[in-house]
């Protein structure tokens, strides 16, 4: 008899606990803050500056979502995650979304039960070598010592690349970008490999950047994007379309400079009107108000502005748009229509 009482009590505890689960959007609104998972520090994508403010391209996405949902781009709690902890943090509900240059792969999407809500940066894994090594191609790297940043898809791509080209190498796994850089500069490895954007960012901080070259080979596809938990489609839609709004804004010429003017009254372009909420009821469909996209864009500018401000050619990182140009300019950045 005693046993059944205990089991009963346990069941009640379990039920009470499960009743507490609600939609992520309601949670975020009730909390008044968006918990956004970011990296522990990768300049240009997400890193706290000298004043402790998080800055970067991924951070911009978090802020846009917070602005769309909560009306305040500052209402974000940035949760630093490592490669190891990011998925658990998301799965367990510690964070509402993950914007940590995470590669969209089949197994993460399907097996780990996450939902990628778009791609904010098309990346690929590259190699950097000192110029005086005299290496012109990654295929010349037979027997080289390669520094890898662990916790990413990098080590898998590397193994695949060297295996398919049938050349040997010596991997040196390193936890943080800063330490990998130190090892590379000290000469403990001949090659440093990570995403090409990361390589550019790293090279920019060297004492003498011109002494290092990034090899032409890009050995993998790394579509990076924000992701949310499987199963909460409403919340997934909000994150997806907040990102799309930034992309659409650039395509339609809506910038943080002219957005006030464009949203004051309906313009001649119906898609701009729908995006900014002066026409139609897209915001309502998402469960937000009409000005959601306007706020998202005002948070840090449109996609192009975010790019230029954080990782563009005028920043120390100095990345060209390349694949990340709008589809009209020969890039891959493309949003489904707002209608």
């Amino acid at each position: 008899m005693k046993k059944s009482v205990i089991l009963g009590a346990l069941t009640v505890a379990g039920l009470a606990a499960s009743a507490a689960v609600a939609g992520t959007m309601d949670d975020v609104k009730a909390r008044g803050k968006l918990n956004c998972g970011v990296t522990t520090g990768l300049v240009g994508f997400a890193a706290p500056d000298a004043n402790g403010e998080w800055q970067g391209f991924d951070v911009g996405v978090c802020r846009a979502v917070a602005a769309a949902v909560l009306g305040d781009p500052k209402a974000v709690e940035f949760v630093p995650t490592t490669g190891k902890t990011r998925f658990t943090a998301l799965a367990s509900g510690e964070i509402d979304m993950l914007a940590r240059n995470t590669t969209w792969t089949f197994s993460r999407d399907v097996d780990l039960k996450f939902e990628f809500t778009g791609i904010n940066y098309y990346d690929g894994q590259g190699f950097m070598v000192p110029k005086d090594l005299g290496v012109g191609s990654a295929k010349d790297l037979d027997g080289a010592t390669v520094c890898i940043q662990t916790g990413t898809t990098t080590e898998l791509n590397l193994a695949d690349f060297f295996r398919s080209n049938n050349i040997s190498y010596e991997p040196v796994p390193i936890e943080t970008n800063a330490e990998a850089q130190q090892q590379y500069l000290a000469g403990a490895c001949d090659v440093y490999t990570t995403d090409a954007s990361g390589l550019a960012a790293t090279r920019a901080t060297f004492e003498d950047p011109s002494a290092h070259v990034v090899l032409p080979e890009i050995v993998s596809k790394e579509p990076l994007g924000p992701l949310v938990r499987h199963g909460d489609n409403d919340w997934g839609d909000v994150v997806r379309w907040s990102l799309n709004a930034l992309i659409a804004a650039e395509e339609l010429g809506v910038t943080s400079a002219n957005i006030a003017e464009l949203s004051a009254a309906p313009t001649n372009n119906p898609e701009v009107n729908r995006l900014l909420g002066t026409e139609g009821n897209l915001g309502e469909m998402l469960g937000l108000d009409a000005e959601w996209a306007k706020r998202a864009i005002m948070a840090g500018g449109n996609y192009g502005e975010l790019f230029e401000k954080n990782i563009g050619e005028n920043t120390p990182i100095g990345l060209a748009r390349g694949l990340n140009a709008q589809w009209k300019n020969g890039g891959l950045i493309y949003t489904p229509p707002f209608r």
Binding site: I6, L10, A13, G14, A17, S92, K113, G231
Partner: peptide
């Protein structure tokens, strides 16, 4: 009770996360 509680939570969490 403690072990049972933790175990039930685990089962529940894994179920919701699929």
């Amino acid at each position: 009770f403690l072990v049972g509680y933790l175990y039930l939570n685990l089962v529940e969490n894994l179920r919701t996360a699929g």
